[in-house]
Design a protein around this nucleic acid. Structure first.
Lengths: 111, 111
DNA sequence: TCCATATTTCAATGATAATGGAAATATAAA
DNA sequence: TTTATATTTCCATTATCATTGAAATATGGA
């Protein structure tokens, strides 16, 4: 992962509404949630939410799919794992630290 | 960890210079690095670096200690672990995901 | 004390981001 | 086709952040 990619992802998360939305989606798992439901749960007006979801999408942290009239958003777990790995990369000069070698979540808990 | 605390930490990391500095300190381990050395390695002018280090300190991501005329900065590993845990908390609704239960790095690799 | 070095603070400028109502678009059910 | 619902785009306003040279401060050595 490149520094700029990580900055984009971190900037997307560095905002109260977006962080709340992202965590909601992490907890929702691969099934995801429709935009309206997110708006309702997080208490964010639709237009603001749309703006924030676009930021999260652009950063690659969430993906969306269409289901009838609904747009369902879900967390991109591999993007999250790459970000966490980037932050902890070569920790303490690569000595015997408990660096992440396995992903934190494979995003397939619902199988 | 509270949402606002996490936003502060993420905002501190969501900037190219600061992310580079932070990763440098993560790699440096508990020993840390003096400000001048960071400025030199990262290619950031002292006044800019000072501004960025203050942001990282305020966010609790780095700490500093004085050693003669030098100010030595080092990464706060427990803050990082709390942040990572917060991001992945209750992932997939708390099902059998590989959630972090052990810290990624204890920051004591040099012992 | 005096000087050299390390780091921080100050200040002015320029750039980027957040907000939410109203209007536009899209989809599907009646 | 008409209507209701879901979501996005547009826009103007407001707020916050990044940059860096010059000056100030702090510390230790000569």
């Amino acid at each position: 992962m490149e520094n700029k990619t990580a900055v984009t992802a971190l900037a997307a998360l560095a905002q109260e509404s977006r962080l709340a939305v992202y965590r909601l989606l992490v907890q929702a798992g691969t099934e995801g949630l429709p935009a309206g439901k997110i708006s309702e749960i997080a208490g964010i007006p639709p237009s603001s939410l749309s703006f924030h979801l676009k930021e999260l999408s652009y950063a690659g942290l969430v993906t969306s799919r269409n289901e009838s009239r609904f747009v369902i958003y879900s967390a991109n777990f591999s993007a999250m794992n790459e970000l966490l790995a980037f932050l902890t990369e070569n920790c303490c000069g690569g000595q015997a630290c408990l660096s992440i070698t396995t992903p934190v979540c494979d995003g397939n808990c619902d199988d």
